[in-house]
């Protein structure tokens, strides 16, 4: 007896053991979009009348998120940061090509692009080689620059909401790592929604309840051509190791990942886990260079990456390039 779709009894294309739910292609797409909307409402992420800036990397999660938000009728525009990572596989160029193809297929959508090298004079690998923080791997510098530029662009273009494609596996890998090391500060902050402050956008993760195989299945079923190659610097990353470990657990105990994450959120909400810590650490300062919130007075970690003359360039040097898909580009 083949696995049947719960809705229509046709042959299922996916079975989600943690939900005891098998669905056909059509009903899976419908279910996935509906669940995203439920998550957005459940955590009060944003409303239909609020413009959302979606951080896209060219990978499956962010392009799937953009696709779902557009399908649901949200005002979702894209933001892409050109990192300048080549490493022999033209990683950044290929990622950008996927995003441009996505934009062409969605007439009327808007994509804002910032090129790190054009804006600040050095690509991610180049900054990483120059500064202490980048010694070994550029991932820490890259994460710092991504966060700063997302905040900056959302602020300057007036987006109240910044959405990222983080899925449950991403969240659980972070949660697991922070629990192993009892990183209380990070644990206190981990949530599907980070409130905005002083004009800076609220950060939301509408895919936080989907397993990674579900976002991949959605991208596949919707025919989204995404960047399948990993960032060359992520090889051997801790995140991948933890994800594999947690999938071993999930294979033995269906639902273990979902339970780990949701019970963590529940403990924070109902039992006020880490609530005191959050209050005592809530005080942030505005960076004296860029104005973004930072934990210590003075210049933030991003501004400390660059020589003075780079950051004192005329304002127009930092404006993103905006692409709008032509109506005639419809396929």
């Amino acid at each position: 007896m083949p696995m049947r779709c719960r809705k229509c009894r046709q042959k299922a294309v996916i079975n989600m053991r943690q939900h005891r739910l098998a669905l056909c292609k059509e009903h899976y797409v419908e279910w996935f979009q509906h669940q995203t909307e439920r998550t957005i409402k459940k955590y009060k992420m944003f409303r239909k009348d609020e413009p959302v800036l979606v951080a896209v990397s060219g990978g499956k999660d962010s392009l799937a998120l953009w696709d779902v938000l557009l399908a649901l009728g949200y005002q979702a525009d894209g933001f892409y940061l050109r990192l300048g990572i080549d490493e022999g596989i033209r990683y950044s160029e290929e990622s950008y090509a996927k995003i441009k193809a996505f934009v062409e297929q969605h007439p009327g959508v808007k994509l804002h692009v910032v090129d790190v090298k054009e804006t600040y004079g050095e690509s991610i690998p180049e900054v990483a080689r120059r500064v202490q923080r980048g010694k070994g791997k550029p991932c820490s510098v890259c994460g710092l620059i991504k966060r700063h530029e997302m905040n900056r662009v959302a602020y300057e273009l007036g987006y109240p909401v910044l959405a990222t494609g983080h899925n449950l596996d991403d969240e659980v890998a972070v949660l697991f790592s922070n629990t192993l090391n009892w990183q209380v500060g990070y644990l206190a902050r981990q949530h599907p929604v980070l409130p905005g402050r002083e004009g800076f956008a609220r950060k939301v993760k509408p895919f936080c309840r989907f397993y990674e195989r579900e976002t991949a299945a959605y991208a596949l079923l919707r025919g989204i051509d995404y960047m399948y190659e990993e960032c060359p610097f992520s090889v051997g990353a801790n995140t991948i190791y933890y994800k594999e470990l947690l999938n071993k657990l999930e294979e033995e105990r269906p639902g273990a990942k979902l339970h780990f994450y949701l019970s963590f959120l529940r403990a924070k909400e109902k039992e006020r886990l880490f609530a005191n810590w959050q209050k005592s650490q809530a005080e942030l300062h505005a960076c004296e260079q860029c104005g973004q919130p930072t934990s210590a007075p003075g210049r933030c970690a991003f501004c400390r990456l660059w020589p003075e003359d780079v950051l004192s360039k005329p304002e127009e040097a930092f404006v993103p390039l905006t692409l709008v898909a032509e109506p005639e580009a419809v396929k």
Binding site: G59, K60, D61, H166, D169, D170, E212, R213, T215, A216, L220, Y228, E230, C231, S234, V235, A237, T239, I240, K243, E244, N247
Partner: peptide, 8 residues
């Protein structure tokens, strides 16, 4: 086969 895990 499509690998679903990504580094992110």
């Amino acid at each position: 086969l499509v690998a679903v895990i990504s580094g992110g």
